[in-house]
Design a protein around this nucleic acid. Structure first.
Length: 564
RNA sequence: UGGGGCGUCGUCAAGCGGUAAGACACAGGAUUUUGGUUCCUGGAUUCGGAGGUUCGAAUCCUCCCGCCCCAGCCA
């Protein structure tokens, strides 16, 4: 299933790049990069960045690199580098042979650090972490120079070499850029650029015991790769002067332009690695790929198509204003995509037995039902119709309110692609008072669902033949949180206290039309009148299908019922 | 109280001195064998506020207000 990409609208980053191309600022194609740290799974916020970086490069005839910003061995893991590649690929993007790791540049980065020292622009500082913080001053108070700030180049060179050689324990020294301890920008107060970490790195093993910091690594990695536009999120705006300082001081040939945009926030969920990892660790969800998670692996398992995600990312735009996008827009994009291509089938979630009294016992009729009402090319299947059926419990009311126009005693409705039926009587369990079954009669003249006499009926119900239906497990997913802003509580309540207790309801006694028992994993369906469902790629097996509700259909009736 | 950003419909978001696009959401209505889809229609006299410049301001100037980011040897 491929979908035409939406036409793009203008946003400031697109404008900047268009102007740069217009003015021939570069003598080569533009190059962007998506630079995740492999310390967690990718989520919708990353999807925005991925679509932006890969999308805009492709749009202007350039390329986008995938680069792992793996400079902190303590937090990173190979599991994440694997999942990240899978997720980016699934979203539909290709980095070709441009898969990079900041760790591949460690040797060059070390040389750059040496250069900085020789330039007198970096020094080994032997203050401990607490002391460095004290010396840094505060927002409204300038910092003080480190007593080690004026070590000689020779001493710095010697110390730094010994740091690399492993002569010192963690924390004994750091390498700092010598900039300005009185800068109003905290980032510029002699930032640490190397620290000692006797830790095994997932790629370089024990080769290194000193690791470069983000501010030093990122700009140089960009420069090494020849990035033209280094797009990142707003919180790095304060770091841009440092980005530029490093590249200018080292006089590297390539000096990419850093551009910041606002990160994505979505209602009814959280989008921060820290919070997502907390949900996983506290077992609030089944894992990173729980279909309720806003992770790429979660929405993939939920059944959100990659093209719908791309469309969403285009529609939300790119700007510098902090914003929270309505989850309804994401859901709209998913429905819009699936509406066109998901085959329609019938499934009864909460079955209630219906006996067609005037339908011959043991008789089975095959009724043709198209897979898509607006697209005959999708074909059709034959549905068995017999004397005993199941319909949705919600579709019958013994004492219906005025706006309810489904089945009720004495009322006639249509069974989709089958017959008109009329409810003649209701059988209840004398002990509990619960409805056991409905007795109905059908009109044989209405075969296929049309009435030759032009008689109208107000509702069309989905149904399934009791003896032919298969069983299925269906997972009804809803928003993970009950509040649109789970982490914006005024009283400071933890976001986990707003987890929606009904975010997952597992139905194990659902009846589905016969062919659906053999549904292959990872396929999309629309269960008529209910929503879009996706065969779970992990748990669904032929003969015992498991469906995940991807998203509901828009539902006028629920709206009416809820407002009364 | 320092520095850096940002404030246009309920939510995103165009607009860049010539008289407020679009999308989602919402509300009506039409068509409909999914209360689905599709299709019309409705909505910011106004752009955080107040002044000013101008024939003309969301767009320029001034002041004010609000929100976000920065004091990791995280990214």
């Amino acid at each position: 299933m491929t979908s035409p990409e939406p036409s793009s609208s203008s946003h400031f980053i697109r404008n900047i790049i268009a102007e740069d191309i217009q003015s021939c600022k570069y003598d080569r194609p533009i190059m962007t990069r998506f630079p995740p740290e492999p310390n967690g799974y990718l989520h919708m916020g990353h999807a925005k960045s991925i679509c932006l970086n890969f999308g805009i490069a492709a749009e202007f005839g350039g390329v986008c690199n995938l680069r792992f910003d793996d400079t902190n061995p303590g937090k990173e893991d190979i599991e994440y580098v694997t999942s990240i590649q899978e997720d980016v690929r699934w979203l539909g993007f290709d980095w070709g042979d441009r898969l990079h790791y900041a760790s591949d540049y460690f040797e060059r980065l070390y040389d750059f650090a040496l250069q900085l020292i020789r330039l007198g622009k970096a020094y080994v500082c032997s203050l401990n972490a607490d002391q460095i913080r004290e010396y840094r001053g505060a927002l409204t108070r300038p910092g003080q120079d480190s007593p080690y700030r004026n070590r000689s180049v020779e001493e710095n060179l010697d110390l730094f070499a010994r740091m690399r050689a492993g002569e010192f324990p963690d924390g004994a020294h750091v390498l700092r850029a010598k900039i300005d301890m009185a800068s109003p920008n905290m980032v510029m107060r002699d930032p640490t650029i190397y620290r000692i970490r006797h830790a095994s790195h997932h790629r370089t093993g024990d080769t290194w015991c000193i690791y470069p910091m983000y501010d030093f690594t990122h700009c140089l990695s960009d420069a090494i790769e020849g990035i033209t536009h280094s797009i990142c999120t707003l919180e790095f705006e304060n770091n841009r002067p440092l980005y530029d300082w490093v590249l200018n001081t080292l006089a590297v040939a390539c000096h990419p332009q850093q551009i910041e945009f606002a990160r994505l926030n979505l209602t009814y969920t959280v989008l921060s690695k820290r919070k997502l990892i907390e949900l996983v660790n506290k077992r609030c969800v089944s894992g990173w790929d729980d279909p309720r998670m806003p992770t790429i692996s979660g929405i993939r398992r939920r059944g959100y198509p990659p093209a719908a995600i791309r469309n969403f990312c285009e529609r939300i735009g790119v700007a510098k204003k902090d914003s929270t996008v309505d989850m309804a827009l994401l859901e709209h994009c998913v429905r819009e995509y699936l509406n066109e291509r998901a085959p329609r089938v019938m499934a009864v979630l909460h079955p209630i037995r219906v006996i067609i009294d005037n339908f011959p016992e043991n008789q089975v009729e095959l009724l043709e039902a198209p897979y898509h009402p607006d697209n005959p090319d999708m074909g059709s299947r034959n549905l068995p119709f017999s004397r005993v059926l199941y319909i949705e419990a919600d579709d019958f009311m013994e004492d219906p309110p005025k706006k309810f126009y489904r089945l009720a005693p004495g009322r006639e409705v249509r069974l989709r692609y089958a017959y008109f039926i009329r409810c003649e009587s209701v059988v209840k369990d004398p002990a509990t008072g619960n409805i056991v079954e409905l007795h109905c009669t059908y009109d044989s003249e209405t075969r296929g669902g049309g009435a030759p006499d032009g008689r109208k009926v107000k509702a069309t119900l989905h149904w399934v033949s009791a003896s032919h239906a298969a069983n299925a497990t269906i997972r009804m997913y809803d928003h993970l949180f009950t509040r649109p802003d789970p982490d914006g509580d005024k009283n400071g309540a933890d976001f986990t206290s707003f987890i929606n207790p009904s975010s997952l309801e597992t139905l194990t006694d659902c009846r589905i039309e016969p062919d659906l028992a053999a549904a292959s994993p990872a396929s999309h369906y629309q269960f008529e009148r209910l929503g879009y469902f996706f065969t779970d790629p992990v748990d669904s097996v032929t003969g015992a299908p498991v469906f995940n509700r991807t998203v509901t259909l828009k539902d006028e009736w629920t709206k009416i019922r809820n407002q009364k």
